[in-house]
Amino acid sequence: MAFADEFPVQSLMYITNRPELVFTEGKGSWLTDQHGKRYLDFVQGWAVNCLGHSNPGMIEALTKQAHKIINPSPAFYNEPMIALAKLLTDHSGFDKVFFANSGAEANEGAIKLARKWGRKHKDGAYEIITMDHSFHGRTLATMSASGKAGWDTIFAPQVPGFPKAELNDLASVEALINDKTVGIMLEPVQGEGGVIPATREFMQGLRALADKHKLLFIVDEVQTGCGRCGTLFAHELSGVQPDIMTLGKGIGGGVPLSALMCTAAVASFEAGDQGGTYNGNPLMTAVGCSVIEQLTAPGFLQSVQDKGAYLREQLLALSGEFGLGGERGEGLLRALVLNRDIGPQLVEEARELQPQGLLLNAPRPNLLRFMPALNVEREEIDLMIGMLRGLLKKLA
Rank of each mutant, 00 (worst) to 15 (best):
A267C: 08
A259E: 01
R351V: 03
G124P: 05
L301S: 06
F202T: 12
P160Q: 04
M185P: 01
E108M: 13
S172G: 03
E108N: 14
I111K: 08
E313I: 00
L346I: 06
C226G: 00
D306Y: 11
I70M: 07
P298Q: 03
F269Y: 15
Q158L: 09
P72Y: 07
A85W: 05
R18I: 13
L332A: 08
R138I: 11
H53E: 01
F7E: 02
F99K: 05
A100Y: 08
K96R: 14
K212T: 13
W117K: 07
L216H: 12
L336G: 01
G326I: 07
D341W: 10
Q158K: 08
G288E: 11
V48W: 11
R138P: 00
E327M: 12
G253I: 08
V43W: 10
R364E: 05
N78M: 03
K164S: 00
N78P: 00
N375C: 10
G343K: 11
G183E: 06
G288M: 05
N361R: 07
H121G: 00
V255P: 00
Y14E: 06
A104V: 06
G252V: 03
M371I: 00
G150F: 04
D211A: 15
Q356T: 12
R378H: 02
L358D: 01
I342P: 01
K394T: 09
A265I: 02
V9E: 10
H136V: 06
W30C: 03
I292S: 05
D382Q: 13
L324K: 15
E105A: 15
T246K: 13
M384W: 05
A259W: 03
Q356L: 06
A165I: 11
T263C: 03
A264Y: 06
A335R: 14
G288N: 10
E25M: 13
G325I: 09
K249G: 00
T63D: 09
M203Q: 14
Q34M: 05
A264G: 10
P365W: 12
T277A: 14
E166K: 14
T199V: 03
T224H: 05
L324S: 13
I128G: 03
I292N: 05
T153K: 11
A125Y: 09
A165T: 14
E321M: 11
A106G: 03
A264L: 09
N361A: 02
L31T: 03
I154S: 06
A267H: 12
W151K: 05
D95S: 12
G329I: 02
A265H: 14
T16K: 13
V173R: 09
F300N: 02
A47P: 01
L336A: 00
C289I: 04
K68S: 10
I15G: 07
N49C: 11
L333D: 13
N49W: 13
S73K: 12
L260T: 04
F233Y: 12
V347Y: 13
D211K: 15
V9G: 08
